[in-house]
Design a binder for these strands. Structure first.
Length: 472
RNA sequence: GGCGCUGUAGCCAAGUGGCUCAAGGCGAAGGUCUGCAAAACCUUUAUUCGUCGGUUCGAAUCCGACCGGCGCCUCCA
């Protein structure tokens, strides 16, 4: 039984999709005005892990992530760079797809863009207007929060209390300071679309209501995003969608904790923004994913070099085992010992962990327990049969690779490509072996060191010398 | 002011009433293997879970107070 912490009810609830085995899931994607940062990456990776786990459990997940491609920040950048907003959005959309691919994030079923849904957005605003939830002031259309009795139900805020807050700017045009824009009148030089209210563009919140409805329906299962989106963005989405349809918008709301740098929020003013793109120049995608998976998605995560280098280190243990079993599988040893290992136990433990509100840190612990126990079995036995290695591989493929995305067997396998190269290495190993037999350790160490310098690491063992190629 | 999160070993981080009074990763120390390394394995590394009280047969886990860190309430993942 899968439990999910639902922001709406502030409790862990049993997950019951509307139409099993189908699950409809929407995640707020990027505003494409810049490369996305490592904090965004956390949301994307954790929603990816959640999605993969649902699939692991046999659900058919329709996963939709929007791209906000018209927005104040994009317009600002286009003005700064003296080019049109469309090309800014296109460039960073392209970069977004490159980066999520590098992070080994499984592609969504759909990446709807706001600018491709202007019609749906306008229709939705019209509907809200007809129902009396929206009002037009000189080409700006606002949502009237006082008309929606449930306003504040997600964030636990009350309209009166919000109004007494000092930080809300007073806008003369609005009937209430909390009212938010559904349609923004175009200013000179801004991108615009024709609408019943004149030339303008959609407000930020409306696109998610329009697009999630179009691609997932009026009511769907899971909506996820960063913590800071709870208010006002998700609150406003609920207000828009539920006012328009009269139906419940989303059953389970999932929110990701913030990523801090040195215990401070990432911000432009502090100059501590790291893009995912830059981080990936230093660390592997798997290390980033492991570092994130080792912290529960909802809690805060303090990002540091130490965090990633320790994840990179831990990953090596996993990769070493993966390489070992690939080699052994190639041996194709039909006969031999099958060490006793309770694969079902690890599988159950993994599932139990993930079933408890996607407790990925616990799931990682199960995987590392498994790795240790397999290594021990390998150390204690000789002539282990193929059957054992295939079972080990299957488990790791389903969990570490399939759900957490912290291992990639296809990369492990790639290492064995290049027959000539391999023959040369084997030759050197043989020469070194001869040198060792003659106790010419100066030469044998030289061969080992020189190979290491070019990224090939030799490892002696009882059964002979093996090597692995280290990525440069 | 309102709402919410959080304080567990040198670092990161699960656990949220007894069954693990404490997983897992990194780091550190010792050992096995090895010519030496590397990898792997074994052992050790929190009698203790911010502090002080309380509830209970029993609490890191519930309650209260206090101390500390953070977020949201304005664009933000």
């Amino acid at each position: 039984m899968l439990l999910i912490y639902n922001t709406l009810t502030r409790t862990k609830e049993e997950f019951n999709p509307i139409n099993p085995p189908n699950v409809k899931m929407y995640v707020c994607g990027p505003t494409v005005y810049d490369y996305f940062h490592i904090g965004n990456a956390r949301s994307f990776i954790m929603s990816d892990i959640i999605r993969r786990y649902l699939e692991y459990k046999g659900y058919e997940v329709k996963f939709v992530m929007n791209l906000t491609d018209v927005d104040d920040k994009i317009i600002k950048k286009s003005i700064d760079q003296k080019r049109d907003a469309k090309s800014v959005a296109e460039d960073y959309s392209k970069a977004f797809f490159e980066d999520i691919q590098k992070l080994k994030i499984k592609p969504a079923n759909d990446y709807p863009k706001a600018t491709n849904h202007i019609k749906e957005i306008i229709d939705l605003i019209k509907k809200l207007e007809q129902k009396g939830f929206a009002y037009n002031i000189d080409g700006n259309v606002f949502y009237n929060v006082n008309r929606f009795s449930n306003y504040g139900k997600l964030s636990g805020k009350k309209i009166d209390e919000l109004e007494s807050g000092a930080r809300i700017e007073i806008n003369d045009e609005k009937k209430d300071p909390l009212d938010f824009a559904l349609w923004k009148k175009a200013k000179e030089g801004e991108p615009f679309w024709e609408s019943p209210w004149g030339k303008g563009r959609p407000g930020w919140h409306i696109e998610c209501s329009a697009m999630s409805c179009k691609h997932l329906g009026e009511t769907f299962d899971i909506h996820a995003g960063g913590n800071d989106l709870i208010f006002p963005h998700h609150e406003n989405e609920i207000a828009q969608s539920e006012a328009a349809t009269g139906k419940k918008f989303v059953n389970y709301w999932i929110h990701f904790g913030f990523l801090n740098i040195n215990n401070e929020k990432m911000s432009k003013s502090l100059g501590n923004i790291f893009t995912a793109r830059d981080i990936l120049k230093i660390y592997s995608a798997e290390a980033v994913r492991l570092a994130f998976a080792q912290t529960h998605y909802a809690g805060p995560l303090n990002f540091s070099d130490e965090l990633l280098s320790s994840a990179e280190k831990g990953l090596e243990k996993l990769k070493n085992l993966a390489e070992k079993i690939e080699e052994e599988i190639k041996e194709n040893r039909q006969e031999g010992i099958v060490p006793k290992l309770d694969f079902e136990k690890y599988k159950n433990n993994f599932g139990t962990a993930m079933d408890d509100d996607f407790n990925s840190p616990q799931a990682c612990a199960v995987i590392f327990d498994f790795v240790r126990d397999v290594n021990r079995a390998i150390a204690e036995n000789e002539n282990i049969s193929l059957k054992f290695y295939l079972s080990v591989k299957e488990f790791l493929q389903n969990t570490a690779e399939g759900v957490l995305g912290i291992l990639d067997f296809s990369e492990t396998a790639n290492q064995s490509n290049g027959a000539l190269e391999n023959d040369l290495i084997e030759l050197l190993i043989k020469l070194r072996q001869d040198a060792k037999l003659e106790k010419n350790y100066v030469l044998s160490d030289k061969i080992r060191n020189e190979l290491k310098n070019i990224g090939i690491e030799l490892q002696d063992s009882k059964s002979g010398t093996t090597y692995k190629k280290n990525k440069k």
